[in-house]
Design a protein around this nucleic acid. Structure first.
Lengths: 233, 233
DNA sequence: CAGTGGTCTAGACCACCCA
DNA sequence: GGGTGGTCTAGACCACTGT
């Protein structure tokens, strides 16, 4: 692993284990550089991730301080399952569709591929702690996700991607809006027709710039909760 | 202004004006460094912001490319008014409350101040293009926002902060969930009692690490739209 | 004024992609 | 193997804070 990530993990651990306490001042850059045997810039890089995580505030002229984050970080760069497990919940999936189809105009644009390229089209209902909670409509290029089977979709596609294929997820763009449940959604999520759902549209990028997922998830409003942290760069 | 921000603005302009087109490869770091008379690291910093903006993908081994973002970027680091204006909409405000009160336990914790510190408590209904759209419940420390008047709240508090006080907004943490409208919300937003609203809870930080706002906004579901871009650092 | 973080440079070395 | 980005160093200088 890269040096600054190791340092990041170490300092994060110290904060989570209260070795560095709330509002406490961290050692300055030079001291940390000495401790971790690296340059101050590398320390800065590590601390910048903690800032992005919302765990640290850096004050020019006075120092870096531990900050209390609002949230318990549900990351949209992990799969539904990983997030649920982190909160100690059980997830099962109910496949409504698992097909390989050629990309139409709209999908090709979203996945930045050519029309006609082969695409997995997967529709799953995710059941979290026995409650149908999300219906996910997912498109993924076959040439990137080669070897994906219906068995993987029963478990976690994200684990297949990162553990089997050794691909690295880099970033995503997402949009949240509120929509009305159609008949299929109403049936599968066990809500009234036209009841409101939270729609999350997402495009997910790999490390190498390729797009591996375009998806639209619709969540029941009772269970949906999203938290994040912005930093103006 | 800082060098890397200038470079960022310049390159962003080129992308928006299609001088660099969709999927086109940007010049490499060394060339850009020559053009802008700076080191490659400074170029990297500028491009990293474009990556965070979702306008650029950098591919190790092949180059940096212009990417089409999903969204039209509604930033939660700007105020309601600035965002509305960017989309060509009219905003007016209806003040339900403008008080100075001592911070109770909960507010003091959110604002990271002491119990009893004086706090502006402001409740406003924002009317966008003649439609009551958001009800905002805002708490701000008096010692930071000194001189804030009810006139400012009719317009844009954010503009007062950045233009008058010359403070710089740095980051925020936010949480989104769905709640049911109470009587006050129902009346002011003109929706049925218990109808669903999008609740956005936010803590906003200044450049110097101080918190200047804790707020809970409730949006009508028809109009709420949120988009963002994540990068795993 | 001393302490601390932010920006910037010049250069080294490595990892990855593609022809 | 040549092109390109990512990480890292050592050191300079500037901006802001608090005493």
């Amino acid at each position: 692993m890269v040096k600054y990530l190791k340092i990041y993990e170490t300092i994060k651990q110290r904060i989570l284990e209260m070795e560095y306490r709330l509002n406490e001042k961290l050692p300055d850059g030079a001291s940390l550089g000495k401790e971790f045997d690296c340059s101050e810039l590398t320390i800065k890089k590590a601390l910048d991730i903690l800032v992005a995580d919302g765990l640290v505030v850096r004050k020019r002229g006075s120092g870096s301080f531990v900050k209390r984050p609002l949230n318990t970080t549900t990351s949209h760069l992990h799969g539904t399952k990983a997030n649920a497990i982190k909160h100690g919940k059980e997830v099962t999936s109910n496949n409504l569709k698992f097909e390989i189809v050629p990309a139409d105009e709209r999908i090709a644009e979203r996945l930045n591929c050519n029309r006609g390229d082969l695409i997995y089209h997967i529709i799953r209902v995710r059941i979290i702690d026995s409650l149908p909670t999300v219906i996910e409509d997912t498109y993924m290029p076959v040439n990137i996700l080669n070897g994906l089977t219906i068995e993987h979709t029963q478990d976690s596609i994200y684990s297949f991607i990162t553990n089997q294929l050794k691909l690295k997820i880099h970033s995503s763009t997402m949009e949240i809006s509120i929509v009305k449940a159609n008949e299929i959604e109403s049936e599968n999520l066990n809500v009234p027709l036209n009841d409101k759902l939270v729609a999350v549209e997402q495009i997910v990028y790999l490390d190498n710039g390729d797009i591996f997922e375009y998806s639209i998830s619709k969540h029941t409003t009772d269970t949906y909760h999203f938290s994040t942290n912005f930093v103006r760069l």
